[in-house]
């Protein structure tokens, strides 16, 4: 049975999921950060997973700078950053972190009665690209600080029953 979802507040969910991933797998601590100023990632890496179900669809994006992507790769592999030689290692780590974030969100949605499937992760790297999602997928942006590095998790969710979730209300939460 589907439950009403005024309590599906994305921010604390993503906060906790991200903290768990960073602390358990990377031994790094992260803190929520203000949206302004937005992180300026000229060279960036974006991991994404899609969610699709009868009553909900959407995507989760992890936006990090190329430098920070290499840092988290080194942390997860427990090596020095200079030992990160291949883009494949960075790709794999960003992919796995995004997968864990998406998995947490999917679990919460399924527990609330919004069954959905999650795609395998995709990673985009480059310096000049823009990600466009369907205009009716309202974004929820969560900013974080890890040391001096600011980065972003963007969650786009669309519910079939629009009353089930109010992104403005979640934004305030």
């Amino acid at each position: 049975m589907r439950r009403a979802l005024p309590s599906l507040d994305i921010q604390p969910l993503i906060d906790q999921a991200l903290r768990d991933v960073f602390e358990r797998m990377l031994s790094l601590s992260v803190l929520p950060a203000a949206a302004s100023p937005r992180p300026d990632h000229s060279e960036r890496v974006v991991g994404s997973v899609g969610l699709a179900g009868e009553s909900v669809s959407g995507a989760v994006f992890l936006h990090v700078s190329e430098v920070f992507a290499r840092k988290i790769t080194a942390a997860m592999l427990a090596v020095h950053i200079q030992e990160i030689q291949s883009g494949e290692q960075v790709h794999d780590v960003v992919s796995e972190v995004t997968n864990m974030l998406g998995g947490r969100l999917k679990s919460r949605l399924c527990d609330a009665g919004f069954r959905c499937a999650m795609s395998t992760p995709t990673v985009i790297r480059g310096s000049s690209f823009r990600i466009e999602t369907a205009p009716d997928l309202p974004p929820r942006e969560c900013f974080f600080l890890c040391g001096q590095e600011k980065f972003l998790v963007a969650v786009h969710l669309k519910f079939k029953d629009s009353k089930a979730y109010d992104p403005q209300s979640a934004q305030r939460g």
Partner: peptide, 9 residues
């Protein structure tokens, strides 16, 4: 090993 911790999963 799963990234999904939901009750249903």
């Amino acid at each position: 090993l799963t990234a999904e911790s939901g009750r249903e999963n």
